[in-house]
Write a protein that binds this DNA or RNA. Structure first.
Lengths: 331, 331
DNA sequence: CTGTTAGCGCCTTCAC
DNA sequence: GTGAAGGCGCTAACAG
């Protein structure tokens, strides 16, 4: 076995001091004579010594790392959120451990694994539909947690008003003259989908439109789902086609556009289309959409989490981020 | 102070055994009587006990985590790579710690921080331009490292043949009848950019085209750079416009399209355009491009890294991934 | 099969 | 200011 990593004892010995003093300069405590400090620093450089974070973590019971839990890596929504997360993490010296956890029955148990692992000081759970699970255990763990993209009455949370967003979309379509409006929703199990549906219903009621069942499609948030759903709509007799479609995500809208294109149809000429999220793609594809400030969501989530970790948060933090409609070319 | 986390002693005491035995069932060693094992497992459940990863890491000198280092989070190229990474990490029980490190003079030092932290068992560095730095220290550290998107003679590496890729692009343009071909390159400091330029020169020579300096633009790999560069080209007298442009990244191609659109120009009618990478956007924007299998790059990188960590890799691993041209509508 | 004991590398009182 | 010693929670020989 080759010479092992140098540790605090090597430094202490070579510098002719005790390990406690070395530890003090590592954690730059002021109670060290400048002279000995310099000597120690010099030795540390000579030996190319750097403290083991793992050992520090164990001793300090703190890891300087946070867990970010997502249901997916690729979805553009999360990429945007991640960017915000990274940007506000970079300033601090905090590591980012990324976990992908599916939104299923075992998600809380998997999160508890993370809690118990002691590898992180806090957890940010993005779009995990926590409220629809038995999160008692997590709540009792005393681990700082912030829930993003979902309102919570027990954890810190940062979220969007889905009802309002959906309402904005339908309002816009209605005010543009549409009466036959279809809604392609996301996973009905999901909080966000449920709320958006509520928003749709609310807007329909407001405009005295009636809710035609064949115009309400439940699928999931991905492009493939949007594609399928639009197919479904287009299989209706042409006279029954909606004049406008509201998709619960831009990904779905993109899929819907594909379905349209395959039949040489175009939005908004044949059927108007509005998406949701405002992912980067929406800009290039010129999709009219509801903008959820995802970058800001990520940023704020981490800021709040770090505060919670520091214990600077006396009360539960709760904030709704504003939505806005981005008018482009598909509606 | 509330009751602290339960530890291995709590379990041992309650189960009436020694901690070694508890440790054995944690690491499911077979040398435990079924009876006592059951008893211990039961107690572990009652106490909701789970071992501290941090303590295990320290004792085992192993962290079951890998560091992935990227120069950017948002770039679509990396997102695609990340997906591959995540997918092959998910099968194993290995954590992913993500670091964003700029490609500057201090990058090796920052990487060494990670090495010494002992938080990870291995490192994957994506597009970090390692070869252009003094990496001696990293090499000597014995930390398993794999370099992705860059050829290395000292580390395991997985990469693309940039020369060939660039050649393919120019060949295609030439064979489509173009003689006045411009090249918008990425950051000239960067390995990949340098090689792509070489490929361009090689292809030009082959086709007996001469390299007109005003058609060679050095910028960087992002959309904004492509936009600027295309502007520059369009500011030439119309008679001197190139008939085709090869952009060293799809991002740049997207920027270039913007510049074109602003002048009501269109690819390929006014100026043909070919990109590089085949990011997802390229598909939707119908950009003809050179496809680098980024997902596969990510996947393979992790596979190799995990093998290196296990010590299953006797020799240095080196692999070039195949490129292909995706013909779409811009050229 | 199982308990004892010494680390893993660092932090943190507590004396000096 | 500084050193000695115990502790963080777990693993890994080494004895039984």
């Amino acid at each position: 076995m080759a010479k092992d990593k140098t540790n605090i004892y090597d430094v202490a010995k070579k510098a002719g001091v005790g390990i406690a003093t070395v530890s003090r300069v590592i954690n730059d405590s002021d109670k060290v004579k400048a002279e000995t400090r310099d000597k120690i620093i010099q030795v540390m450089n000579e030996l190319d010594y750097r403290p083991s974070k793992v050992a520090q973590n164990l001793a300090k019971q703190k890891s300087n790392a946070v867990a970010v839990i997502l249901p997916s890596f690729v979805d553009h929504f999360f990429v945007e959120v991640l960017k915000g997360i990274q940007d506000s993490l970079e300033k601090k010296e905090v590591d980012l451990i990324l976990y992908k956890i599916d939104v299923d029955e075992k998600r809380i148990s998997k999160i508890m694994d993370i809690v118990h692992s002691r590898k992180v000081d806090g957890i940010a759970a993005i779009t995990m539909n926590i409220s629809n699970s038995n999160y008692q255990e997590l709540l009792e763990s005393e681990m700082p947690v912030v829930i993003a993209d979902e309102r919570s009455k027990d954890f810190h949370s940062i979220y969007f008003d889905n009802i309002k967003g959906a309402e904005m979309a339908v309002d816009y379509l209605f005010n543009s003259g549409h009466q036959k409006i279809a809604f392609i929703n996301g996973d009905p199990e999901h909080y966000n989908a449920q709320e958006r549906f509520q928003g749709v219903k609310k807007a329909f009621k407001k405009h005295k439109l009636d809710l035609d069942e064949k115009y309400i499609i439940e699928s999931d948030f991905y492009a493939e789902d949007g594609y399928q759903s639009m197919q479904e709509l287009l299989e209706l007799p042409r006279s029954q086609w909606p004049s406008a479609v509201f998709a619960a995500s831009d990904n779905q809208a993109i899929g819907a556009i594909q379905a349209l294109e395959e039949r040489a149809l175009k939005a908004p000429d044949d059927i108007a289309l509005i998406g949701y999220d405002n992912i980067e793609l929406a800009k290039y594809l010129k999709i009219t959409t509801i903008w959820q400030p995802m970058y800001k969501l990520g940023q704020l989530t981490i800021e709040v989490l770090l505060k919670a970790i520091e214990g600077d948060l006396k009360e539960r933090f709760e904030k709704e981020l504003d939505l806005s409609l981005i008018k482009r070319e598909t509606a």
